[in-house]
């Protein structure tokens, strides 16, 4: 397997994606070359149909490429098989979804623990990490609640904890604040920024939200499936 061993977490090389919609080819991504380094807090922005979601799906291995190559944490994921990709995602990527997407029958604690169970982390270590994470995201005392007994903000906190607790290489967040009120959204973004600074974990957002853009240290704007601008900020 091809490997890329420098400090770059994500490297894409001439990535293209063509969908077929009712027999009509749709060029969603038109050759993106991009590098995201370890510890970045990056937002991919752009209008609807700009290809940001498709691009995020591709760099997470959820969608395949029509052409080009994608390396994540030095591994060429664009040529991995389904099971290999599952294991790779489990160990390297933390996901935060717009709709939280927690497992509805598991409690907050069990949701956070789930990926570690798949990874085979020993019970005591799992418990230790979950307790620590619950405290970190401000959910201490709510560990036994199932998702429907939590507010949107609390559910998203569980999702953040779930994404981070397995210590992935990168966190990919798709519109994480879209379903939250602005106050809760801001609180969560500040928390993620703080976690990024404290742990050095890489965050990549796909968003429309100005609050995310304001806090991002790098802003990549997509338009018509191509990078329109790539701006580093302080």
């Amino acid at each position: 397997m091809e490997e890329n061993s420098n400090n770059d977490i994500i490297v894409t090389e001439n990535v293209k994606k063509v969908y077929s919609e009712n027999g009509v080819p749709v060029h969603a991504v038109k050759g993106i070359d991009l590098t995201i380094s370890s510890g970045e807090f990056t937002a991919i922005v752009g209008p609807s149909g700009s290809g940001k979601t498709t691009f995020l799906n591709i760099i997470s291995g959820l969608d395949d490429v029509t052409e080009g190559k994608v390396w994540l944490n030095g591994k060429l994921i664009s040529s991995m098989k389904s099971r290999e990709l599952s294991d790779f995602r489990r160990d390297n990527i933390g996901f935060i979804f717009q709709a939280y997407n927690l497992i509805p029958v598991l409690t907050a604690e069990e949701n956070i623990e789930y990926i570690m169970l798949l990874q085979g982390v020993p019970k005591e270590e799992r418990h230790e990490r979950v307790v620590k994470m619950l405290e970190e995201v401000g959910l201490k005392g709510m560990e036994n609640r199932i998702p429907t007994k939590l507010s949107g903000g609390q559910q998203q906190r569980v999702a953040i904890a779930r994404a981070m607790v397995s210590r992935p290489t990168i966190i990919l967040a798709d519109e994480p604040t879209a379903n939250l009120d602005s106050k809760t959204g801001a609180e969560l973004l500040d928390m993620m920024r703080h976690l990024n600074e404290r742990t050095g974990m890489t965050f990549v957002f796909s968003t429309h939200d100005n609050m995310v853009m304001e806090r991002a240290r790098r802003l990549i704007t997509l338009k018509d499936g191509q990078v329109e601008s790539d701006e580093m900020r302080n």
Partner: peptide, 16 residues
């Protein structure tokens, strides 16, 4: 379907 999609996204193997 969405739930299965999430399970697979976070690393649950197809056989699981």
């Amino acid at each position: 379907t969405r739930e299965y999609g999430v399970l697979k996204a976070v690393g649950t193997r197809p056989f699981q």
